[in-house]
Design a protein around this nucleic acid. Structure first.
Lengths: 233, 233
DNA sequence: CTGAATCCGACACGATACTG
DNA sequence: CAGTATCGTGTCGGATTCAG
C-alpha cells in the first residue's frame, strides 16, 4: 500500500500484509464476510473508525479487487461486498479469531463496543475449531433488546452465524451482555445464566442446547467452590 | 499496544490485531517459527527493519508472552524464541501465506530480499494446503552458493522446511533465484529448469521428485505454445 | 440522514549515526 | 553482536464541514 507499508521482501506473508495489514482493513473484511454492508453499517460495527479512514480503506480494498461497490440506482445508498479474492481471506480471520479467543480475550470493558453479530461470528468459528457437534442439525435464533437478531446454525457438520432471523428450533430473547456472559462462562458455571436467555422451543430442542453448552451441576456439588478466572467453553 | 492501536471493540480479531497487527510483528514470528534466532539473524531476514524497531517489537512480544529472551551466560549473543502462545500463531501465518500465494504473489523485483529459508517455508505451507503427497516419506536438501542449506521433508502426511542439513534422499546445489524460478513456474514449464538445481540422489529419489513436481512435455507437443502469465505449481 | 472531504495534532515508523 | 539516539516523514485520530 503506502510506501512505508512496503517490506521489499519476497515473501507471501509480507505481500499479504502490505495489502491487508494496515489498521482497520481486516476488521472491514470481517464485517463484510457476514454479507454486503453499507458505509454506515460498517462505520457502526467498527466502533471508532473515522469516516475518512473508512473511505480510504474501502478505496484501497476496491483497488486491490477485494471489495466491490454497488450503488443501487435511484437510491443513494452504497453497498460494499467482498469479491472471491476477499472471501478467501476468511481463513485468515478464522485463525486470528481462534488465537484471540485462546490467548487474548478478557471480559468486555465498560465503554467497549459489543455487537452480537460480531461476537457470535467469533463464537461459531471457535466452536468449529473445537469440533463441537450437535446430535442433529439445529437452528437457534437470538433476538436482542437493541439490535438485529442473529441466527446460529449447525448444519450437521459446521457452525455458522448469519444476521437476521430464520425458522428456528429455538428462540432466545436476551441482551448482548447476558448472552456474552453466558458464552464466556465455563460450561459448568453456565446453569444459572441460562435463564437470562429466555429460551423458547420444543423440550427436545432445549435439551439439545443444554446438553451441548451447559453442564448441570451435580446436586451434591452445590457447595460453593473456588472459581478460576480462566474461562473454558 | 499503543493507544492508537487500540480498537475498543469486543472482538477476538480486534484483540489479536492489537497485539500482533503492527508492522513487522508477524514477520518476526514467521522467522522465529523456524527456530530460535539471534537479533542479527532477525535483522537480516527482515530486510529493512531498523534496529530500533526490531528492539521495540521484540520487547512488546516479550511483554505479551509471545517471545522469550535467552542470554547465554558468558557470550554476548541473545537468542529469541517463541513461547507456546507464540507458536500458536502458526495457523495465522499459514493462512496469510496461502492467501498471499493465491492472490498477491508476483516475481521478485530486482532489489528484493530473497531468502531460501523464507520462501521454502512458504512453499511447504502451500504444498500442505494443496494436499500434494509423495508415494513415500522423503527428505530433500538444498545447498546454496550463498547462505545456509535448507531441508525439505515429507513425512508421509505433511511437508515441512527446516534450516540446516540432514541425511537426505536427494541433494540439490543451486542458487536462491534458480530454485525460486523453478518453483514459480507451472509444472509443465519446469522441465528445462530442473538442470539448474543440480540434483543428486538415487534414480528412485530423482523419479519421485520429477513425478511430483515436473510434468515432462510430451515429445509431440514440443511446438511453442501460448503461455499464460499465471503460474500453477 | 448518508457518504464523504478537510484541516490539525499525536505518534508510529524510517534513515542514519553512534555506543557498550 | 546487540542494541541507543536523533531527526524527519507518513499514518492515523478528532473535530468540523459539505454535498446528495
Amino acid at each position: 500500500m503506502a510506501r512505508t507499508k512496503s517490506y521489499d521482501h519476497f515473501c507471501a506473508i509480507a505481500r499479504s500484509l502490505e495489502i491487508v495489514g494496515e489498521k482497520w482493513t481486516l476488521l472491514i473484511v470481517r464485517d463484510l464476510l457476514r454479507g454486503p454492508q453499507r458505509f454506515s453499517d460498517l462505520r457502526r460495527f467498527m466502533g471508532g473508525i473515522t469516516p475518512k479512514w473508512l473511505t480510504n480503506r474501502l478505496r484501497e480494498l476496491e483497488a486491490e479487487g477485494i471489495v466491490e461497490r454497488d450503488s443501487v440506482s435511484g437510491r443513494r445508498e452504497v453497498w460494499y461486498r467482498l469479491t472471491p479474492k476477499g472471501r478467501d481471506l476468511a481463513p485468515v480471520l478464522e485463525s486470528l479469531t481462534i488465537w484471540g479467543i485462546n490467548h487474548a480475550m478478557r471480559p468486555p470493558e465498560p465503554g467497549e463496543a459489543l455487537y452480537p453479530e460480531v461476537f457470535l461470528q467469533g463464537t461459531t468459528t471457535y466452536l468449529n475449531s473445537r469440533g463441537l457437534r450437535l446430535p442433529s442439525p439445529s437452528t437457534w435464533v437470538f433476538r436482542f433488546d437493541a439490535g438485529s437478531p442473529v441466527t446460529i446454525r449447525f448444519d450437521g457438520e459446521r457452525w455458522s452465524a448469519t444476521p437476521g432471523e430464520s425458522e428456528a428450533d429455538l428462540v432466545g430473547a436476551t441482551t448482548a451482555a447476558d448472552l456474552l456472559a453466558f458464552l464466556m462462562a465455563r460450561v459448568r458455571d453456565r446453569a444459572p445464566l441460562v435463564a437470562a436467555l429466555h429460551l423458547e422451543g420444543s423440550p427436545e430442542a432445549l435439551a439439545v442446547f443444554r446438553t451441548a453448552l451447559v453442564r448441570e451441576p451435580a446436586s451434591s456439588a452445590r457447595l460453593p467452590r473456588k472459581s478460576e478466572p480462566q474461562s473454558t467453553r
